[in-house]
Nucleic acid binder design. Structure first.
Lengths: 259, 259
DNA sequence: CACCGTTTGATCGAATATGATTGAATCTAG
DNA sequence: CTAGATTCAATCATATTCGATCAAACGGTG
């Protein structure tokens, strides 16, 4: 029975919504619908509006007050998008790691995938600036050396001038690098100059530089230059990369491997 | 009307998971499944998500809080008891951190507790060799610098000769140190010489050295010497430490604070 | 009363979350 | 080290939930 009290205007409903969310912390659309005697569509519109004004956060199935903890991590997630490709690329890369090698693992999700594959290798030394890679290898696996530096939150990597200190002391057989974009003319580019600086250092210290980058990075140009093609020896990417692009790239120097 | 069908939103589940893991340290997927009334698949997905955000660590059969891989003498019964002491000690230590400070966080569960308390501080620079502390502060919080070095698995800290490179470039206002044991004659001792080496370096670079150690460490002597009492300025411990021991210790130089 | 803008409710394809299944990976006992 | 049991990751099927769209109800105005 549609009760008589639903003369509530939108601003009043908003008050009620805010109160409920504040009290309970988290609440479902379905509960709000029953409680306030309006349709779910209206609830959603209200929640969208309230979220726009701040104080609450929408989640699937309901909403929560923004101070009810749960701090969203900063790095966005396109992991599932190219997960398959990344995995394949990492597998090819893993096959390039020989016993006794000293290798470097850069940041980025593809390289992280490689770290995962190396978790059971022994007789191997891994040097990295990636907290996530370090975490992946922290339980067991190869000897692990973390280079010092300042944490860049977005990428969870250690970057900046301090990285030169440890890197300067080490010689690397192979460096597996990630990137935001790689393009024919511009080479490797990334968003952060400190990150780019550290990548440059690494590539200088490594006997062989291997870029791991799925096709979505091809042709993309970001802010800071991280390296040019004469420093890269191998590029491992997936089959979806444009054929013409691949041919032109090969002319620049690096060997191209399509996983 | 209690007829509201109580479905839980994903973020609520996450919160519950976090709480359970934090309380019990280690927990099995099977237990979580029963406790939260969802399928094992969902639990696994949730755990993956939480691990991605940090704070917990996925292991075969379940998950564990990231700090529980710590500390070598770990007696199950003693742990929860000491947890409260550790927390208190950490709270006292947190009060000693001033705005604008550059501080060092050593490994160990008590110092990790301090890291947790500093997670929302800004205008603060934290230098650390502890992967777990780094992880704790990786989402947000103070500026974070990780010193380079080789990973020691047991303690999840970076140690060894490489640590001198970054440490040599930095000056620290306050260093918060952990230890395996501290005794009147032998000073600070720990199990691993590389770990001890790095601790020594840190204490040399810090203007003020603050030892955080609950009473169970008092009088204990381990293998490698990590520091002597004339290098330690403050010792924060709990009330259960022996009175006579405390008086003798104070004669050696450090100021004693009982949390 | 006709007109018009606003708000709400209803509908439907798309996106998302969850549960079940299965072959592969991992652990453990011997 | 192997065999058996457990746990996992991947995949598919199903159930919610979402967002966009449009139609109905409402309220004011000429």
């Amino acid at each position: 029975m549609p009760a008589t009290d639903n003369k509530t205007l939108a601003p009043q409903r908003w008050e009620a919504l805010r109160a409920l969310i504040r009290d309970r912390g988290v609440i479902r659309v379905e509960d709000l619908r029953r409680e306030l005697r309006v349709s779910a569509a209206t609830i959603r519109r209200d929640l969208d509006e309230l979220e726009r004004r701040g104080g609450i956060r929408r989640v699937h199935g309901g909403a929560m007050s923004v101070e009810s903890r749960l701090d969203e991590p900063l790095f966005a997630d396109k992991r599932s998008l190219a997960a398959r490709e990344k995995r394949r690329i990492a597998e090819v890369a893993a096959a390039m790691v020989a016993a006794g090698d000293t290798i470097y693992l850069d940041g980025g999700s593809t390289v992280l995938e490689l770290a995962r594959l190396l978790r059971d290798r022994t007789n191997l030394t891994v040097v990295t600036n990636s907290l996530q890679a370090a975490l992946e290898l922290s339980g067991r696996g190869p000897r692990l050396i973390v280079i010092g530096g300042e944490l860049r939150r977005l990428s969870q990597t250690l970057v900046g001038p301090l990285t030169r200190l440890v890197l300067g002391e080490l010689h690397l057989d192979k460096a597996f690098m990630g990137t935001i974009g790689f393009a024919l003319e511009e080479g490797l580019t990334t968003t952060d100059p400190s990150e780019a600086f550290t990548k440059q250092l690494v590539m200088r210290q490594a006997r062989q530089v291997i870029l791991l980058a799925d096709s979505s990075k091809a042709g993309k140009v970001s802010f800071a230059r991280a390296g040019s093609w004469d420093e890269v020896h191998v590029v491992v990417t997936d089959r979806q990369v444009d054929g013409a692009f691949a041919r032109e790239l090969a002319k620049k120097g690096p060997r191209l491997v399509r996983a």
